[in-house]
Nucleic acid binder design. Structure first.
Length: 618
DNA sequence: CGGACAAGCTGA
DNA sequence: CAGCTTGTCCGG
């Protein structure tokens, strides 16, 4: 009788290798590739994944220890492979992907006889429909029938949805259509996610979830659908910065099944993957976008700040109709930049010279129904060195300070004055505002979080971006696409085109292609111009980007090594706060992975380097 | 990662 | 030279 030996990858990201273990007879029937086990390693007991079965051990059999126990079922072999692909693509440890593909709690493993013997996925359920489609679907056009139509009758499908808010109506719809739906979403409890994972393993179902759902262990994948494909929520923020859209495309390709990407304004990456972007009939398309009103800030009377005449008019109309208004503004706090009304001196810190900001004592209530702001005591604070200063000009001593740039809470007060009978509430992602308070509010003002947090109890009659240029011109290469996604989300809240409801955009760039695309209900204007821009810069999809960050020596060393490689362009390193960073560009992501992996091992000796492939900022 | 063991710094 | 820090190695 020969001893059964398995190769196990320990769940220790810093260890870049696997180890062999003996399989005790008592648990032999529960072990297969993917099974999560507990192993003894260097005096510790750690979790790991069986990555190979029936191996010929490399070390003497006498030194091999037995597995301690079976923790539970893990990802099927083909998902481990997909995880390895992602690990290379985004330069991360394979175990971080194995973790994403595993249930949060233990799942009883199948007996070996039951388990789907390898390649179940490769037995294509999608038949000849193995193709990639990109659909530009207007934000307010019901996409549920579209999705239902994309789901094959047999086999399992995975639907990735970044926007949790839309999840429930989709689930209800599909369930009513007779589908067996399981939800795999980070907002669910561990027990619920574990249950969905083990149900997915049985196949013949529809998995609906956030980005983590691309790893669902369905054995009979037949269709992959990614909704709001251009939404940044599909990308993991922490390294490895994997993107669910790209994993979905790869998984579908490997299984030979159809993959469909849907977005109001598809990303340049998505558009580059297909011959033609599919769109609804022109009349349906324009009906699916809210009416847009562009306010050219250059033509507005000076001194009124962001509360323009047009905005005031739209607000009154919305509030009078009993509908809710959402105002988006990405500057936090009160006045961010002040100047003396008498001598025009910029209000700066006497210590370090940084621009001081306005703070108020006794600033508490989220509601403000009056605007007796004069009675609130105001002072100045340096955001750099925290030096406080009284509310007066350092140059001439005048107390008449003029606001050059105002923040959310300042606008909230001005709105309260403009709409004395309405409740104005400011919202941001950090503060906890309870649902009751949100429901009572007639006007919500804050960062883009207002678009996510607005309750659905009342129709939204107005969404206004007070300073859209903040988004359009943000110093990130994806700024235009991010703005487009934001505008599409706003348009969705407003519903189909109607005379009354509108999307109001305040800007100094009324001719910007993202604004034109939205106001003309023609998303191609945005993706064509974005594609041109990317091509000119050799940015994705016309090249691959990564950002390296870490201590100076390590980044400098890596940058020099990379520069020496053919086809690699390196910008930097430059100091960024306490650390250093550089930008690496390659003709394609395979070349980028190859270059980074070649350098990574050597650079690690000099100190930790954080690698961000497809960085969202920069 | 985290323990083991080796080589380096300090102090009375 | 004990006693502690810092570095390098390695795991079945």
């Amino acid at each position: 009788m020969t001893l059964r030996v398995v190769r196990v990858r320990p769940d220790l990201p810093a260890i870049d290798r696997s180890f062999d273990y003996l399989v005790p007879d008592a648990i032999a029937h529960q072990i297969s590739v993917g099974t999560i086990v507990r192993i003894p390693l260097h005096g510790r007991r750690v979790r790991g994944w069986v990555v190979e079965d029936f191996v010929q051990p490399e070390t003497e059999i006498s030194r091999i220890l037995p597995l301690l126990k079976v923790v539970g079922a893990g990802p099927p072999p083909e998902i481990l492979d997909l995880g390895r692909w992602a690990a290379r693509r985004w330069i991360g440890p394979d175990v971080s992907f194995f973790g994403s593909a595993s249930p949060p709690n233990a799942v009883v493993p199948n007996a070996v006889a039951e388990s789907f013997s390898g390649g179940a996925e490769s037995a294509s359920h999608g038949s000849s429909e193995s193709r990639l489609r990109v659909i530009a679907w207007p934000p307010s056009m019901d996409r549920r029938p579209l999705i239902d139509g994309l789901l094959p009758e047999s086999g399992s499908s995975i639907v990735i949805v970044p926007d949790v808010g839309r999840l429930n109506s989709l689930i209800k719809y599909l369930t009513r259509a007779g589908r067996v739906v399981h939800v795999m979403h980070a907002t669910r409890t561990a027990a619920e996610r574990t249950l969905a994972w083990s149900e997915a393993r049985k196949g013949n179902c529809v998995i609906v979830g956030g980005r983590g759902a691309v790893w669902a262990p369905v054995p009979d994948l037949a269709a992959m659908i990614v909704l709001d494909e251009s939404d940044d929520a599909l990308q993991e923020e922490r390294s490895p910065t994997w993107h669910a859209r790209d994993v979905a495309i790869e998984r579908a390709r490997r299984c030979g099944v159809a993959c469909t990407l849907v977005a109001a304004i598809p990303s340049a990456v998505a558009v580059s993957l297909v011959e033609d972007v599919e769109r609804p009939e022109r009349s349906d398309e324009s009906a699916g976008w809210a009416r847009v009103e562009v306010v050219d800030l250059r033509e507005e009377a000076p001194g009124q700040g962001l509360l323009t005449e047009s905005l005031a008019r739209a607000l009154h109309k919305c509030v009078d109709a009993g509908e809710r208004a959402l105002l988006v503004m990405n500057r936090k706090g009160r006045a961010r930049l002040l100047a003396c009304g008498a001598c025009r001196e910029l209000a700066r810190c006497e210590g370090c010279g940084a621009a001081v900001v306005e703070v108020q004592s006794g600033e508490t209530s989220a509601f403000s129904t009056d605007s007796s702001a004069a009675e609130v005591s105001r002072s100045l604070l340096c955001p750099v060195c925290s030096t406080a200063r009284p509310w007066l000009c350092a140059g001439c001593g005048s107390t008449r300070l003029r606001v050059l740039r105002s923040g959310v809470s300042r606008i909230r007060d001005d709105l309260a004055a403009l709409l004395p009978r309405s409740r104005v509430l400011d919202v941001d992602a950090s503060t906890d505002v309870d649902l009751a308070a949100l429901r009572e509010a007639d006007v919500l003002v804050g960062t883009e979080a207002v678009l996510h947090r607005a309750p659905r109890d009342r129709p939204v009659g107005l969404v206004a971006f007070l300073d859209l240029d903040q988004e359009l011109l943000a110093p990130r290469h994806r700024a235009a696409e991010q703005s487009a996604t934001l505008l599409a989300r706003a348009a969705r809240l407003l519903g189909p085109r109607s005379e009354a409801r509108r999307l109001l955009l305040q800007t100094r760039l009324p001719e910007h292609d993202v604004i034109r695309a939205v106001s003309e209900a023609d998303p191609s204007i945005a993706w064509i111009s974005e594609t041109k821009r990317r091509a000119a810069l050799s940015y994705p999809p016309f090249g691959a980007l990564a950002q390296l960050r870490g201590v100076e020596e390590a980044v400098a060393y890596a940058a020099n090594m990379l520069r020496a490689l053919p086809g690699v362009t390196v910008l930097g390193p430059v100091a960024s706060g306490a650390s250093f960073e550089c930008l690496v560009r390659c003709p394609d992501s395979e070349a980028l992975s190859g270059a980074l992996l070649a350098v990574h091992a050597g650079a690690r000796a000099l100190g930790r380097i954080r690698v961000e492939v497809d960085p969202a900022r920069v």
